[in-house]
Write a protein that binds this DNA or RNA. Sequence first.
DNA 1: CGGCTGGTAACTGTTAACAATCCGCGCGCG
DNA 2: CGCGCGCGGATTGTTAACAGTTACCAGCCG
Lengths: 245, 245
Amino acid sequence: MAPEATVQSNQNEDVPRLENLTLSQRAHAFLRDEILSNRLPPGTELQELALSQQLGVSRGPIREALGRLAAEGLVTVRPRRGAVVHSLSSGEFLEAYQVREALEVLAVRLAVPLLGPEGLAQLQTLTDTMASRAASGHVTEFFEANSLFHETFVQLSGNEKLQEVYRRLIGQMRRYWRRSLVLRGDLRRSVAEHREILRAAREGDAEKAAVLMAEHIRVPQVRLQSMTADELLEAETSFDRKVTE
Amino acid sequence: MAPEATVQSNQNEDVPRLENLTLSQRAHAFLRDEILSNRLPPGTELQELALSQQLGVSRGPIREALGRLAAEGLVTVRPRRGAVVHSLSSGEFLEAYQVREALEVLAVRLAVPLLGPEGLAQLQTLTDTMASRAASGHVTEFFEANSLFHETFVQLSGNEKLQEVYRRLIGQMRRYWRRSLVLRGDLRRSVAEHREILRAAREGDAEKAAVLMAEHIRVPQVRLQSMTADELLEAETSFDRKVTE
DNA sequence: CGGCTGGTAACTGTTAACAATCCGCGCGCG
DNA sequence: CGCGCGCGGATTGTTAACAGTTACCAGCCG
């Protein structure tokens, strides 16, 4: 068998290379990343000409990308007045948290009966990572591990539609991770809650794990409802001081 | 036959309400409606040139509309190979049902404590409508009232983010209403379940209403899981015979 | 007779130019 | 001095033409 005769090399096709994508897809991915990473914070005005020059393409692909981002809820377009990065009010943030709770409870119910040794090990590793990062005060890195823990449950649920809906929602919320952390409060308590969820999952008790997950996600909700807007702002700024120092 | 009558034919307003919107918004709304009403059934190939001639606009707005529809999950675009109306497999349909259950349970939990006399009256009217349409065998009209019943709960939840996510999901599922009805089975039992949900809501027992709603939505799921693809197809065709006669 | 190859037509991706609308600003009027 | 009013620049909405890719088909070679 001629080992080099395989003309169609599948080995570099399975990973979508950015070079082969269409310009509108690249613009979409680029802007999405810029928004999700907060380099384009909520409220930023997005002008087509500026973006097209920055990316070196014409306005057509830019418009398509903006339209898709609008359909995803990441930007709002005001007809004939341009697009701005969408921002969530406190109320909308709370609403999103409620939906997220429902989705993650479903994820846990579906995932727990399917969990194998490798899934449990994955979750255990993430929990340990969270614990060490919480102990060392690396809040940003803690948040990353925390997000991965929750997303892992959604992935292990095996329900792709759920993953799609969840990721879209998380994409809208992730930019407010500082607000989330402020509302979360004590990280050690958060780690303990994750450990409890994982223990229930390991025991195969889907219902218990689901209830624990619901309570866990409800913690920031009740804090948000009991805080005024001023208190929230004050807490966020003091959080910023603590992190940047 | 007459594809060259493009310039003058569509210059008048087929849909007078949409005059103020941009062309891409009109194209988006038009295609969305065509897809949701099943005039463009799943699997239909959407060619930009044909659509632009049909709507009397150029390809730019059409492309923007297709991009937004793709972001909404209503069409899938294969790069350089055109767009097709997205279709749901049995598995994806079941997945969507699971997500829908989670969302509607949340809606019931939120809505019940907020229900006033007018909300209850609205739900009662819809239930009565469903009952009469089920009794007279008007299955299509029954489905409409049924959809409205469920959507009303979501609306009365007061959570706009939930409404947004729910409507997007329902938009993907509504085209398969025949499959839904086949899986639902006995309409009278369905009506009875709605009455029970409404009674619990009237009593202010949100938890009971939520559980009843979950069981109600799970009925088609368990039937779908217990059916093979062939049985489902057979049931759908026999359903078509029964409806069209 | 089947599979490969080359050409061709149709379609998508992209661009630049054109048209329409909005916004800020200064001017004139009351 | 305040307020409308239009005018000019900037920005979005739309179009037609161009470029590149894919799919299809006929004809040739094995």
